[in-house]
Design a protein around this nucleic acid. Structure first.
Lengths: 346, 346
DNA sequence: GCTCTCGGTGATATCGATAACATATCGAAG
DNA sequence: CTTCGATATGTTATCGATATCACCGAGAGC
């Protein structure tokens, strides 16, 4: 023990627990206990230790600690993108929920591709997270295998996967979009158009489109007015371009539904730029209830999703499983709410 | 060695490197080398090992590795909020730049307070990051001490701190806002108002306000038209409320400059809602060049900041110092660019 | 008084990898 | 034929903490 202290006579870097222990005149085990929440240490000893900790500027090394305790205190989460405020909200919900537990979030961006997700999952697993939160239910086979053999709880969010890996916290994008169509149909709109991205890599986008198509069919309304524009996530600008394309092909479209509020906002602004009246000439609705949808003029009708709550509940689910040690819990599906928010744009 | 394998006869959890080594008939050291980039291992051996790795579904445990190599591969970054797309862009720049190096980002939110920042820094340091990126130059004394004794490179971003800790990647918010004032003054506006948050905890906001005040004074224009509204970050909604307050007190204001594009957008929408013509009745400008500023109608004049580049360069700076081992580098100040983007709102 | 329990503390053995040094093999150089 | 150097691999000793068990003293219960 004395070796560490004498070989490095306070000469330079990072003091270790041994240094603290020597200075406080106790064993490292006692220091370890004093720095833990529930550690049983007498008040006097704890004070001595704290003095030593402060004098030395000691900061606990968790990477060492997690090796012996076999608990890293990490939780990994993958979102498609953080530049999308919906997912930023979810990430926020996760972080807030984890904060009090001392768990640290490892955050990654998948860029909406399962390939990048697979790589990220592998990179994250090297850090031995105690749980992992994914966005959506589409994953590569290898990713599924990696997750399975990691033996940690997994939460899939933002969707209701057909074949869930483990836990789920989400909602049916299909139903949510269907509800929007039906709400607008009740207001009298009949010729509906839909704007979304081109590829199917954004599974939530595809599900919303399916929900749109199905609802239109069920209601017996004119079908086929679908514009795909740009690689998801479709931007404000692309929303504007897409609505132009929509109006060229189907000029009599009465209501345009967009895969997200961003594209809806782009469409709205483009229509205004062209002197169209909203919603008299054309109604526009989005999805996600972004802040911009609420405060732009006219406000955009949309579907509000509990983004923050999704993150919060996903994290809570994980914490339950992680901290509720051993007790093997069943798979659980948590449905989060959504609601249509009607504004002036429809 | 055989112990580990025999005591747990492939019975359950996470295989270790020993299991791989046994299966491949080599030592753990060889496995370790095979899994590393520059590891010198014969082709045949590497293949044997990879087979074993795949058979077992082995994933390297970096928390163990970083203990012996004394390199965690973590970089910590603190941003005020991820729900602000400017900072999300910066986070994105950091992540992208780190990706190829194998460094993993630990991201935290300070909520615009130095107290939360201090706590976060401490929590991050427990993970022994090899470098740390901060937003702004305001920190508690304790945070400064912690960083100093951690002995790792620090990059402060988004500002030009008066007393930098180490590296800096940023720009002068004061000058940038001053440039905006001068640009608009050249167009003939004389009665300028400023909208920002109430407290000074958002140092960048304060600097922008100072830049505004100073520029107005230098140009000899009417002073004093300052509205503070809401706790930073000031939202779209608060921007709308603030502009109302501005118009009540100083109805003849010709141009309103806002601390960010979000508040500018709120102000713009509120003015339109009231039937005002932009920019004839009132001109509005923001800061940050958010996507919404470019595509709303009318487009909002703003100051474009290289958010992504700030993150990228901050990360690059860290990587240079971290990987350019030992060679003690000097403190460096990297100035990032900004430019006024004139749109229809002025 | 004597066991029993429990709070407080220390000694020791890991956790799973890698650094550093040692060793073995083989061909080229002298 | 010996020596040297490069390449491939193994052995041993940590890295910095914590789990686990052992120990000791003090008050409680009988």
């Amino acid at each position: 023990m004395a070796k560490a202290a004498s070989s490095k006579p306070s000469e330079s870097y990072a003091p270790t627990m041994v240094d603290v222990a020597l200075r406080a005149g106790v064993s490292t085990m006692t220091v370890s206990r004093a720095l833990k929440e529930g550690g049983r240490v007498s008040k006097a000893t704890r004070e001595k230790i704290m003095v030593a900790v402060n004098d030395l500027g000691y900061v606990l090394d968790q990477s060492a600690g997690s090796l012996s305790s076999r608990k890293t205190g990490f939780v990994a989460a993958m979102v498609p993108s953080l530049n999308n405020s919906n997912f930023a909200d979810t990430a926020r919900g996760i972080t807030d929920e984890l904060e009090s537990t001392g768990l640290q979030l490892l955050l990654g961006y998948t860029d909406y591709t399962v390939e990048k997700e697979e790589k990220l999952i592998e990179a994250m697993l090297r850090r031995r997270p105690e749980g992992i939160i994914l966005t959506g239910g589409a994953h590569t086979d290898r990713a599924r295998r990696l997750l399975k053999s990691a033996g940690i709880p997994v939460v899939e969010t933002w969707e209701l996967p057909v074949k869930p890996i483990d836990q789920v916290v989400g909602f049916s994008n299909e139903e949510a979009m269907g509800l929007l169509v039906k709400t607008l149909a009740r207001k009298g709109y009949r010729k509906f158009g839909y704007i979304g991205g081109t590829t199917s890599r954004d599974t939530r986008g595809s599900q919303r489109r399916e929900g749109f198509v199905r609802a239109i069919e069920e209601l017996g309304l004119p079908t086929g007015r679908l514009v795909s524009f740009g690689v998801p996530p479709i931007s404000i600008e692309q929303g504007g371009q897409a609505v132009v394309s929509m109006l060229e092909r189907w000029p009599d479209t009465q209501a345009v539904l967009c895969v997200s509020d961003l594209s809806a906002f782009g469409a709205l602004m483009e229509c205004k730029r062209r002197g169209m009246r909203i919603p008299q000439d054309i109604a526009i609705a989005g999805f996600g209830d972004y802040e911009v949808a609420a405060f732009c003029h006219p406000g955009i009708t949309t579907v509000n999703v509990d983004c923050y709550g999704i993150g919060q509940q996903a994290a809570r689910r994980l914490i339950q499983v992680i901290r509720g040690d051993e007790k093997r819990h069943g798979q659980e599906i948590v449905l989060t709410g959504y609601r249509v928010v009607e504004r002036e744009s429809t």
